[in-house]
Design a protein around this nucleic acid. Sequence first.
DNA 1: CTGATGACTGTGA
DNA 2: TTCACAGCCATCA
Length: 114
Amino acid sequence: MAGTDDSREAERRILAQVRSIPAGQVAGYGEVARRAGLPGRARWVARLLSANTHADLPWHRVLRSDGRVAFPEGSAGYREQCRRLRAEGVRVEQGRVRGQRAAPSVDEQVWGPA
DNA sequence: CTGATGACTGTGA
DNA sequence: TTCACAGCCATCA
């Protein structure tokens, strides 16, 4: 069961990062992993979200690096995610998020997040 | 150990 | 923008 202390700590930090995403904003899987100090663990983040669909976890604010929903169009998860995002004022079209960016801009990488 | 799987990512055509 | 492909990583059979 991957119940090592290290992995539990890593999971905790990832989930903490997801919860730290403000309403109306979005973040990428890889970005969340990077901010949690776990670069390259984007898929791990995705797996965690699928195993932790809690009400207090804003999993819907996590998108792919393209800024698109990570679910196949038409699936239950896809519709639920779009619905929740729009409820927070996020503009979603064709499974894509407009007005917000999933990946940090070059400026953010150089100068750091605002 | 090997191979398959997945809410991923970057690169190239 | 789209699609295909390879790379990546934890988990499971």
